[in-house]
Amino acid sequence: MPEDELLEEILAELQEINSKLDRLLTGKKEMVFDPSKKGNIADSLDIITLLSLPDHLRTTATTLLEIGPATAEEVAELTSKERAVESSYLNQLVRMEHVNKYREGRKVYFQINER
């Protein structure tokens, strides 16, 4: 198979995986955070929910919990990861509604959600 075709196939597969992940996250969001349902689970990040996060997100969330509102760069300094990587993790946590973000001047800050 020519290299270009192979790359295209990989790209298509990756997009498929991405959309599946998005559906999973959206599905989970509906399942967990639907406020219309009784017995709704909290949308602030408690320690037991934090423990159930995958390793990489847990490290990011724990760091944010310890230092309070911070930029992706500040989190990355503590976790020794690239800023772009932490930014992606933080945004995943935002999509999961565990973290919220806000802008102050030119900087974007992330903080653990509070109810």
Binding site: I41, S44, D46, I48, T49, L65, E66, I112, E114, R115
Partner: peptide, 14 residues
Amino acid sequence: KDRNWQSSALKNLI
């Protein structure tokens, strides 16, 4: 107390 309370209790402890 519920999970929201526990979540803010952790922040207060930190």
